[in-house]
């Protein structure tokens, strides 16, 4: 593939070792990122090289830290608290930035939801493997039903799918059937600065208004318990105060 950015495939692949090692800066880096954004072939090449480079770190010898090390780390971690720490986040390398994009948010949320279920399940003596570590929900959704962990938590089903606008993924929605049942979503509402209403389309074609939330900063997360049977929900729609559809999702039974 070529012509997807300021650099050609040949130029990007010539730079691949340095890109994989995150040694490219400035304009050249920007141009390479622009190309990688639309070229899975080049991304694949850089991914392979970066995996090798990352693996080298794993070859460093392990060593026993000094006595009391664990306690000192825990003490510092506990005293600072999650919001007090101001260290900058670690920037992903170019190849990884290129492949994170919108899908990343879904993955993070899915991982957290999975962890919440698993952690809760751990306390009850059960575990749940959602299979999220290996990808596989490329269609934008998954369902878990009938697992021991969900059952132990009082849940029957957990479904997730993408919220889309004109075919573009703008968020994710989760529907949990349990006690209580709930709907939770993360969504990028763009430049909308007005209340957003969440509507549920249910079996038979009826529409149920679940609630509203304010939208001011683009990326939002919101949720609510639902009084209706979750398995009857066929779709989720977010509508602006002016009546414009901001995002929608379909759910299968």
């Amino acid at each position: 593939m070529s012509g997807t950015g300021a650099l050609s495939c040949a130029a990007v692949q010539d730079l691949a070792p340095e890109l994989a090692l995150n040694l490219v800066t400035g304009t050249q880096r920007s141009q390479a990122l622009a190309h990688l954004d639309g070229c899975p072939t080049c991304r694949g090449v850089i991914d392979e090289l970066a995996d090798v480079a990352d693996s080298l770190l794993l070859l460093a010898e392990e060593a026993e830290p000094p006595a009391g090390f664990t306690g000192r780390v825990l003490a510092r971690g506990s005293s600072q608290g999650p919001s007090a720490y101001q260290a900058p986040p670690v920037l992903p390398s170019p190849r990884r930035r290129a492949r994170l994009k919108p899908d990343r948010r879904r993955r993070l949320v899915l991982t957290s939801v999975a962890a919440a279920v698993v952690v809760a399940g751990t306390g009850l003596g059960v575990g749940l493997d959602l299979g999220l570590g290996t990808g596989g929900n490329g269609g934008g959704g998954f369902q878990v039903a009938g697992s021991d962990a969900l059952g132990a938590l009082g849940g029957r089903r957990l479904a997730a799918t993408a919220l889309r606008l004109h075919g573009r993924e703008v968020g994710q929605v989760f529907v949990y059937a349990g006690r209580p049942s709930w709907v939770f979503m993360t969504v990028d509402t763009g430049d909308v600065h007005e209340p957003v209403t969440c509507e549920l389309q249910v079996d038979g074609g009826a529409t149920v208004v679940l609630g509203s939330f304010s939208s001011s900063n683009g990326y939002q997360s919101w949720g609510s318990t639902v009084a209706i049977e979750p398995s009857s929900i066929r779709g989720v729609r977010l509508v602006s105060a002016a009546g414009a559809v901001l995002a929608s999702a379909s759910l299968t039974r």
């Binding site: 780390v73 600072q80 720490y85 990884r96 994170l100």
Partner: peptide
């Protein structure tokens, strides 16, 4: 360094993405 690395990972645990390695 090890303390700082572990604390940084702890604070940014929510940003971890399995596809990043």
């Amino acid at each position: 360094i090890a303390q700082e690395a572990l604390l940084r990972a702890w604070r940014h645990a929510s940003t971890y993405d399995p596809r990043r390695g």
